[in-house]
Design a protein around this nucleic acid. Structure first.
Length: 866
RNA sequence: GGGGGAGUGGCGAAAUCGGCAGACGCAUCGGACUUAAAAUCCGAAGGCCCAACGGCCGUGGGGGUUCGAGUCCCCCCUUCCCCACCA
């Protein structure tokens, strides 16, 4: 085979092996050999993957290719770049697989991570593999446990009896976030609520800071707003109502509209409210008990789905408006129970103001309860007087102490009245709940906690970490919900180091999120066996400068990670308040799928192209092309291995980026890849003559210094600088599609002028290409006679003097429509421009009067005529 | 119901500030090279009308601002993602 023919596989393999041998992408830490304190740092991080059994598909890879391009360019620009990769290895799927096969999850994890590592290496990603971490490795989770201990010591971890989501199929407790419409997020199995003793993390203590600190972050606005939504801060008041005939017992409610207090015509408590457990015997009590029983049997799905149709029962109790004149009959308010009031939010009880709250309005209509107007809407807006509900702000009416005040003033007034009488106060409530942090599962970090004979729970000594998982043959949770670790009888028994007394280990494990709450810190100092990471490395590397991943993690991972990070900040372990300075969501890679006329999906491998459409193989039935997620069931999943085998890693990388901006979701189309492959080959032929022996085209072998450029060489130089400027620009929005287009345009100019393409230009173009097509760039760089890696060379700089031509072409418009063109010197004066433009559109101006002339220098002339 | 995106050729997409819509690529068509094909190179191509010169229309739809709108404003439609009785 010809030495000079482009051979993607040989080039990929040669340079991947060389990079590995030379540790080209190894990044030293402060104090290590090779560390250069003068260089600025840049930490570019991918959301590390869960190493599933099915391997990477091209959708996972797009983000990794994007960050790789960033990392490579930053290195060339003189930054010390931290760009690591690892495995988020604990979690349910590995365990489910283990239950089915009887194989230890550790084994399948080793197989899966090996496969992921192999796939990533084939893409030519410049990770510093010496920093690889695996959250299921004891050397890693030792520190997850150590950090949990710090939370525990701070009182941020506590045990509580909570009604939790229990999935019978998975035999586990799930977090609120893992249950969607009453079914498990993973597997879509039905879930029910059930009280169990669980470990909770007090994330609510950080709600305010998690909200406030979003401000300074360079994150997509949509993610910030999702986090704000999730934290759900609302300001209002807690008001205590006395209960008729129940002595000092109070019913407390939370409201954001204390100004509507006098419009409360009934109260509603959640079915779980303790007040309901002490009702006097009688018909009301029986009705309430029946209602509560029915409500608890309902899944959340039913409770929310039936939202349109409100249900409820009168409890027989009356509450008393704390600010009303007791002789006013309106002061006596009936208390109902209804499941539209949620026990988990606020106080689990509300004052119902049907005139000014849509839900209360609906309830009042259904049960024929009185509706009183206490807020007069602005003129022209309909309200209670017109038989509708008005939820906005207006002027208080029918509310003796505040009549005539605006809603805002009225709120203040009511708050001070409540304060004076000690029947309420301002209160801020968050939708965010404490985080249910324990699982009754096998494949997770054991809690580093032990139970003493006196019932106390204490952490094990730091020297006893890690608490490793016992080896089990059966990983299944028990039918009663107890954890699999409870069956490891020898493992459970231990000794309290401080007192020497016997103790039992906690048998719960942490949820899949635990490792991902701090892994970016471990990457900074992955081999440290005295601490999770040293202060010096954190001070140097933190925070993450660019964090790239899917929007799927908008809330949970990013909120949990921020929470832990803030705790670390308070403990003095980290020097920044926030872990991720810039967050970027890559778009989803979708794929084409096909639908038959009835709308059913047809697997892609059953489709053949016919004419300008598609038909199902072996039939004339036309099918329509649609865009969907990549899914096994649609048989439209694309594996990068196959693409790389056919086209090479560089063409694969270029296509991933050329499809569109990194942030956009866009459909994969393997048929488009040859365009990128062709680009790669054309670049190759610009440097290498495939028919002759030399390593380079003869013109490039000569190192000619160009003093003053002219002709084709000048044209190439201009296009090179234009391309470089566009490539530089593409790093702001990570729309590398435009960078690649610019390099293609350069090629279209340089190729026909290859005789004038000089060595200096050739070097700069290879350098520019290096982040995108690193293998071929390295090969050409070497052929240009360099001994060091192109990836350690300096990023070329734009010479602005070549960005513009001396001659510019003006577009000439008449009444805003393009009618002609005029070539002019760049420096041409305005009257010269107008003169030339007039000439260019003479026939369009004939017989008309020019009433106005607009000149945009260097671009356009527009004549407004009559 | 609420929040956030998106809608541009047959397809993926470009288009700093409001200034030549469709760059770049795919597919398509034509040409060169070849015994032939592939590859490669050169060229055409938004739609409609026209023999042609050329003209008209055109960025989901309808209004508006402007000399000029894919871009700004108002209304509407479609679609994707997230949250959904949070008082």
């Amino acid at each position: 085979m010809n030495e000079n023919a482009y051979d993607a596989r040989a080039i990929d393999e040669r340079w991947q092996a060389r990079w590995e041998r030379d540790a080209t992408y190894r990044t030293p830490n402060p104090g290590e050999p090779g560390f250069d304190a003068k260089k600025p740092k840049y930490y570019v991080l991918d959301m590390f993957p869960y190493p599933s059994g099915s391997g990477l598909h091209v959708g996972h890879a797009v983000g990794y290719v994007g960050t790789d391009v960033v990392a490579r360019k930053k290195r060339m620009e003189g930054f010390q770049v931290l760009h690591p990769m690892g495995w988020d290895a604990f979690g349910l799927p590995a365990e489910q697989y283990a239950i089915q096969t009887g194989k230890h999850p550790r084994e399948s994890n080793a197989v899966n991570t090996a496969n992921f590592r192999r796939q990533l290496k084939k893409i030519g990603l410049s990770f510093d593999w010496s920093r690889e971490v695996d959250t299921s490795d004891p050397r890693f989770f030792r520190w997850t446990q150590w950090l949990f201990k710090r939370l525990f010591e701070r009182g941020l971890a506590y045990q509580a009896d909570v009604p939790v989501w229990w999935c019978e199929e998975l035999k586990t407790v799930l977090a609120n976030e893992e249950v969607i419409n009453g079914r498990s997020e993973r597997g879509n199995h039905p879930c029910v609520r059930r009280p169990l003793k669980q470990w909770m993390l007090r994330i609510t203590a950080y709600a305010e800071r998690l909200l406030d600190d979003l401000e300074g972050l360079d994150w997509p606005e949509s993610i910030k707003s999702q986090q704000r939504e999730w934290i759900g801060k609302s300001e209002g008041a807690e008001i205590h109502f006395a209960l008729e005939g129940r002595g000092s017992e109070r019913l407390s409610v939370f409201t954001t509209r204390p100004d509507t207090l006098f419009g409360a015509t009934f109260m509603v408590v959640a079915p779980e409210h303790p007040l309901l457990k002490s009702l006097p015997a009688g018909a009301q009590r029986e009705a309430v008990e029946a209602y509560v029983r029915a409500a608890s049997a309902k899944s959340d799905l039913e409770r929310t789905d039936l939202a349109k149709d409100k249900s409820g029962v009168f409890t027989g109790l009356y509450a008393l408006n704390p600010l009303a004149d007791p002789s006013d009959p309106r002061a006596r308010i009936p208390v109902w129970v209804a499941d539209y009031v949620l026990w988990g939010y606020g106080t689990g009880a509300i004052m119902s103001v049907p005139g000014h709250d849509d839900r209360d309005h609906e309830f009042a209509r259904k049960f024929d309860l009185p509706i009183v107007e206490v807020v007069q809407p602005p003129a022209g807006v309909s309200g209670v007087a017109q038989g509708t509900c008005f939820a906005g702000e207006g002027v208080a009416v029918n509310s003796a102490p505040i009549d005539g005040l605006s809603s805002a003033q009225a709120k203040q007034r009511i708050l001070s009245l409540l304060g004076e009488r000690k029947v309420g106060a301002g209160r801020t409530t968050y939708r965010l709940r404490d985080w249910l942090f324990s699982r009754q599962r096998y494949w997770g970090e054991p809690f580093p906690l032990i139970h003493l004979p006196d019932g106390k729970i204490v952490a094990v000594d730091d020297s006893e970490l890690p608490v490793v998982l016992p080896d089990l043959a059966d990983f299944k949770p028990a039918a009663d919900g107890s954890a699999p670790l409870a069956r490891a009888k020898d493992w459970i028994k231990t000794t309290h180091k401080a007192s020497g007394s016997p103790a039992l280990r906690d048998t719960d494990t942490m949820p899949g999120w635990a490792g991902s709450c701090w892994y970016w810190l471990r990457f900074m100092d992955p081999h440290n066996d005295r601490e999770p990471f040293s202060k010096a490395t954190e001070k140097y590397w933190g925070p993450v400068d660019l964090y790239v991943g899917g929007a799927a993690h908008a809330v949970m991972h990013l909120l949990y990670g921020r929470f832990w990070h803030k705790v670390f900040f308070d403990l003095g372990l980290v020097s920044t308040k926030e872990p991720f300075q810039r967050l970027f969501n890559q778009g989803m890679i979708t794929a084409f799928a096909f639908q038959d006329p009835s709308g059913r999906l047809v697997a892609s491998d059953e489709i053949v192209a016919r004419g300008d459409g598609w038909v199902r193989r072996g039939s004339d039935e036309p099918v329509a092309q649609i865009v969907t997620k990549m899914a096994k069931s649609l048989k439209n999943v694309v594996n990068p291995d196959d693409i790389i085998a056919e086209y090479g890693a560089d063409s694969f990388r270029l296509y991933e980026l050329f499809m569109g901006p990194l942030a956009d979701s866009k459909p994969w189309n393997t048929r488009d890849i040859p365009g990128c492959r062709r680009f790669v080959e054309r670049v190759w032929r610009l440097y290498v003559d495939e028919k002759t022996e030399g390593a380079l085209r003869p013109t490039l072998a000569i190192d000619q210094q160009v003093e003053s450029r002219s002709g084709d060489n000048l044209e190439i130089e201009r296009q090179l600088n234009r391309a470089l400027a566009r490539v530089d620009d593409s790093f702001r929005q990570l729309n590398f599609n435009t960078a690649i287009a610019a390099m293609m345009e350069f090629l279209n100019v340089a190729q026909p002028r290859s005789a004038s393409f000089d060595r200096g230009q050739a070097s700069r173009f290879v350098a520019m290409l290096a982040p995108f097509a690193p293998h071929m760039a390295e090969e050409l760089w070497q052929r240009l006679g360099n001994s060091d890696s192109v990836h350690k060379s300096a990023w070329p700089r734009v010479d602005a003097s070549f960005l513009e031509n001396d001659e510019v072409e003006y577009a000439v418009q008449v009444l805003g429509k393009l009618r002609g063109r005029a070539k002019l010197a760049k420096a041409a004066a305005e009257n010269e421009v107008i003169q030339a433009a007039t000439l260019a559109v003479e026939s369009w101006l004939a017989g008309k009067t020019v009433v106005k002339t607009i000149v945009v220098p260097g671009k356009l002339v527009n004549f407004v005529v009559r």
